[in-house]
Amino acid sequence: MTMDRTNYMRVVFPAKSENESLARILASSMAAQLDPTLEEISDLRTAVSEAVTNCIIHGYKLDSSKEIEMICELYENYIVVTVVDQGCGIADVQLARKPLYTTDPENERSGMGFTIMESFSDELDVESAVNKGTIVRIKKIFHSLGKG
């Protein structure tokens, strides 16, 4: 069964760390239209923050002249947030998704970003190509709504 998309937004913002909170606010505001629980919103905020932070730190290596695109799509009982960068890409996505794996331990990165995104969402897709960029798609079902 396919569901109709009830709302969406597409935003582009520079890869500045200030925009980590902006992205969380935008995505969670759209999700709030469905009236999920606070806990479900917290899960989404955290997952979006991890995805956007990764574009800034890893994808663009802190070059704030680069841009991140975020697409939020709302369905009857879930949201899909897609975060896109045109940065350095990931050579081995399977390896990158492993808990504690990080290429940046000097800056106190924990390597838990993908693990957190996975455990706080219902589906996580990562597509990446070296020197082309990375697309992370987070699907969060609001089970509290009890539909579908």
Binding site: S21, R45, T46, S49, E108, S110, I116
Partner: peptide, 13 residues
């Protein structure tokens, strides 16, 4: 009111 994996880094560091 919010924390992501950056908090892990701060604690472990």
């Amino acid at each position: 009111t919010f924390m992501d994996s950056a908090g892990i880094g701060v604690l472990m560091g």
